[in-house]
Amino acid sequence: MFGFHYRLERKAIGFVLAIIGVASIGGIVEIAPLFTIHQTVEAAPGMRVYTPLELAGRNIYIREGCYACHSQMIRTLRDEVERYGPYSLAVESKHDHPMLWGSKRTGPDLARVGGKYSDAWHVAHLNNPRAVMPESIMPAYAWLSRTALRIDDLGGHLRALRAVGVPYTDEMIANAPADAYGQTAPDSPQAEGVTKRYGEATNVRVFDGTPGDPTEMDALVAYLQILGRLTDAAHKPVASAGR
């Protein structure tokens, strides 16, 4: 064995090929089957995609690095299920490019935060976390309320997501900016299109408490309020979740 190596280490190309070969095995064995074994991701008929506004909110969540302190992955441990809710299923992040499972909980897990607090609570908390939670060490995100949300390019975002496999329709792509506006303006004519395309259960309201053009606060709160609610698969008994 060492004699073979004694010869191998005299050949640069051979050594390079050996490194590539040896290093590739682990990844191939562990990653490739995840795409081919169907049980890896549960079936969840009726699971919806993010609306353009929620997607914009998700991009703000990414931009501000929220994932550095908040996970979105409830593990299959008793205390986690009791603290946060049913453990996370693979299917729940099926449309997440990239996933935001996170690796650190400086703050609590957010996988099921949707609907847990009111919009007003989220706005007050994001403006100044210490206003609602005096001991909190979270940064304040007050500028989100002051910043208008860019919606004109949301169609492009949906198109890129469709290219990587998220089932957005042509209609959704064409109406993305209007839907983003409509979701924050329940009395506007655009609001109707949102529920038509994304379902009756979609939250359509003034998320940041201030009517008018959508702000980044609107988008982020809309995203937080949908976390864990795109599908109810995790709330079903395990036996039926796989069907």
Partner: peptide, 25 residues
Amino acid sequence: VPVSFGHAKSYSSFSGVQDAMTQWW
């Protein structure tokens, strides 16, 4: 896949569990 040639933003080719495994690999 980038949103467009004029956008910094892109969307990862993988999602969910496959993306998590690729990321931590």
